[in-house]
Write a protein that binds this DNA or RNA. Structure first.
Length: 417
RNA sequence: CGGGGUGUAGUAUACCGGUAGUACACGCGCUUUGGGAGCGCGUAGACAGGGUUCAAUUCCCUGCACCCCGACCA
């Protein structure tokens, strides 16, 4: 991709009305644009990151036996009345058409997935089952805040699982726990993300959420460093020690809830009468679980955790490009020819490369943009680099660049892939 | 939804009851090219409505938007 052709541009100035680090950096870098409070456009660079996160989650959900589908956002009012949530859910967006017919804009999808499951689940032979989607959710947050961490419209992965009994739900719940750990490791925040005990569990005493430690977080959790577990402050008065090792040596930290897993049991299967016939022919309630990850929130959390004063430091796994090739043009045009050659070779190798071919930008601006965009490898081709024998390679989180040659760099990247 | 703050070019800002200034960005020309270049010229702006006043971007009221604190929540 040629940087001169990028639709969005970087900005030098910090938007005056943004306080959160993720919003400042993502807007300055041209990853996202704010349409209104809590409602963001993902620009081409930002969408590349979001899609990579989505693919990692997709791989792990598939590995856990999930089947991807896509449900609508526009939900008939009757479904929401059946669960009582048309009236009880304060943050439900309700829309009426010109004939007065009312719909909900889906904030979650139990009201759609359960009637759907009724069509396909009728026997113990159909269980267990797990379906998931990536989809826009709408929640009328009274106060959207913290950039893309809390929006009114956001993309979420939601998986719904169906089981014949509580034991099987519990089994799958643990499968999801493991999947989630893998996901947070793969997107680069595993060391900062803690399985956290929170209120509201049914067969285990507590429910679970995944919390990533960062000062940008809204929640407070109490961390046990030894077990890599945490306790949400909402239950700390009844659970003052680590549930695993019993230690009371816990420290308070701010954290972002990046994922959650819930035992729904029969809460939504009952209103829709989702049942199955067991081996003896008796009719039994289907037991459910649901498991969510907000993609934008996860992306914003990565920025909060992995960034410095100059910009973002994307992990290789979700960086918009693997290599940022910077041309600092020389008078003879040698650097331009070399950079062009390297760009073509990298592209041929299948490396995602953003080529800063802009000729009207100073070296300083290119370096500043490279730091801001946070692509893992920065490669500089200039008259100076060629005079010292080749190209300069620097990882985003290294402080100094190393001299290399185009061939060496190509070998390094092909070894990685 | 309670409390507080702020609304000036695309962005960041200055000043002001009487002609709205600067920087960046953008366009043209020339010179530049290793950490957000220089000179010249040019385009572009007071959230909306009402009130006070000879005169309002400025003061007052209402609305709207955005941000922060709280409550609520992925």
């Amino acid at each position: 991709m040629l940087q001169s052709q990028l639709f969005a541009k970087t900005r030098k100035e910090i938007p005056a009305d943004e306080v959160s680090k993720n919003a400042k950096l993502l807007i300055r870098g041209g990853f996202v644009d704010k349409l209104q409070a809590g409602v963001y456009t993902y620009l081409p660079l930002g969408l590349r990151v979001l899609k990579k996160i989505e693919n990692i989650i997709r791989e792990e959900m598939n590995a856990a036996g999930g089947e991807e589908l896509l449900m609508p956002s526009l939900h008939p009012k009757e479904n929401w009345e059946k669960t009582g949530r048309w009236d009880s859910m304060d943050d439900l967006y309700k829309v009426a058409d010109s004939s007065g017919r009312e719909n909900a804009l889906g904030p979650t999808h139990e009201e759609v997935v359960v009637p759907l499951a009724k069509q396909f689940i009728s026997s113990y032979k159909n269980l267990p089952a797990a379906v998931y989607q990536f989809q826009n959710k709408f929640r009328m947050e009274l106060r959207a805040k913290s950039g893309i961490l809390r929006g009114r419209e956001f993309i979420m992965k939601d998986l719904y699982s169906f089981h014949k009994d509580g034991d099987d739900l519990k089994r799958y719940y643990d499968v999801m726990k493991t999947s989630y750990k893998t996901i947070f490791n793969r997107v680069g925040i595993g060391d900062k993300t803690y399985l956290t005990f929170a209120s509201g569990g049914s067969f285990s005493k507590y429910s679970h959420e995944f919390q990533t430690l960062t000062p940008a977080g809204e929640d407070t959790v109490y961390v046990c460093d030894k077990c890599h577990l945490a306790i949400n402050e909402e239950i700390i008065s009844e659970q003052k020690t680590c549930p695993d090792c019993g230690s009371d040596n816990l420290r308070a930290e701010k954290a972002v809830e990046v994922g959650n897993i819930f035992e729904l049991k029969t809460k939504y299967s009952k209103p829709f009468n989702l049942t199955y016939k067991d081996e003896s022919g008796s009719e039994r309630d289907v037991i459910m679980g649901c498991y969510g990850i907000g993609l934008g929130r996860l992306m914003g959390t990565v920025v909060e955790v992995l960034s410095d004063e100059s910009g973002i430091i994307w992990p290789d796994s979700i960086a918009p490009f693997q290599t940022h090739l910077l041309l600092l043009a020389d008078a003879e045009g040698k650097a331009k020819a070399e950079a062009q050659k390297l760009y073509e070779a990298l592209t041929k190798l299948g490396v995602e490369v953003l080529y800063d071919d802009r000729e009207d930008k100073s070296a300083g601006e290119k370096f500043a943009d490279a730091d801001l965009l946070g692509i893992p490898y920065r490669v500089v081709v200039s008259g100076k680099s060629l005079a010292s024998g080749g190209i300069e390679v620097k990882r985003r989180n290294d402080t100094t660049a190393k001299m290399s040659t185009a061939d060496e760099f190509l070998r390094l990247l092909s070894a990685k892939s």
